[in-house]
């Protein structure tokens, strides 16, 4: 027998509702750390790669996906009751992600793709998880940062919850000494978007699409004015802002009005 005190491992669940499995893969694709993490914490349920599950209760649940149907909501509510800490994993879960773009488009655009029968279950307007239940922590982004997921689990195993990165993408972008894509006339959403991604898109010469959602003090008015000055029309700016986090951006007050609503 070892003299070492047996400490209780963090009980973790990893789940997906409607989504693309990309966030769960972002966890798995920590190839060097995966097997150690699987020993550090007690993965009690992970249906994507695990048959057996013990769903009695969790310390942490990582949840991927957007709520788009009643089954999704059922699982979200069930998991909320069973876990101490509910973590929105990725853009869909945190901000609605690309599926939530449907809230802003004319249903005529996709009506031909819907073959509903007269009765039965219906689609719900796609929404992030925190529109329905309390979310304790966010690992935003499409995809979420691989290392950020591991750091979160390591901290949580020690009983700590890390702070979210508070600054916009521009801060890390400058640190990496990138050229400013906004100045070059690209529709970059870096100034209003939460960083922590090491500005990976601008570093690869692609403008920021805002996949990590808005920072707390996002100055939307100024960005929109700047984009207008660069020659982008309102429809294009709006469509871009709506792509990954439209529902969250719509909640930002701009001169006492909600810009996205106003421009509809």
């Amino acid at each position: 027998m070892t003299a070492e005190k047996k400490t209780k491992k963090l009980r973790v669940g990893v789940y997906g509702i409607t989504g693309c499995a990309g966030c769960m893969l972002s966890l798995i694709f920590n190839e060097d750390e995966l097997l150690d993490i699987a020993e550090l914490v007690d993965i009690r349920a992970f249906p994507f790669i695990k048959e057996k599950k013990d769903e009695r209760s969790f310390d942490v649940v990582l949840l991927e996906g957007t709520v788009v149907q009643p089954e999704d909501l059922e699982l979200v509510e069930k998991l909320r009751k069973k876990t101490k800490i509910l973590v929105a994993l990725g853009a869909c879960s945190s901000t609605g992600g690309v599926p939530s773009l449907r809230n802003f488009i004319d249903p005529e655009k996709y009506r031909h793709l819907v073959y509903h029968k007269a009765s039965g279950i219906q689609d719900m307007p796609p929404k992030p998880v925190d529109e329905y239940v309390k979310v304790d922590y966010y690992l935003p982004g499409c995809p979420p940062d691989k290392k950020e997921i591991i750091r979160f689990l390591q901290d949580a195993a020690l009983g700590k919850i890390p702070k979210m990165y508070p600054h916009p993408v521009c801060v890390e972008c400058r640190l990496r000494e990138n050229r400013c894509l906004l100045e070059e006339g690209k529709m970059c959403l870096g100034p209003i978007t939460r960083g922590g991604c090491e500005a990976v898109c601008p570093t690869n010469n692609l403008e920021c699409w805002g996949c990590r959602g808005p920072v707390d003090d996002a100055n939307l008015t100024e960005l929109i004015a700047l984009l207008h000055k660069k020659g982008f029309d309102t429809d294009r700016i709006k469509a871009r802002l709506e792509t990954f986090a439209g529902l969250k951006i719509a909640q930002i007050e701009v001169g006492h009005k909600k810009w996205l609503e106003e421009s509809h």
């Binding site: 957007t66 149907q69 773009l101 488009i105 996709y110």
Partner: peptide
Amino acid sequence: EGSRYFEGMVKGRRFDEAPEI
């Protein structure tokens, strides 16, 4: 799995936005 209607969501967008979406 719920439906996400990607083909509907890219309608009206510029050609170079489709790969990203």
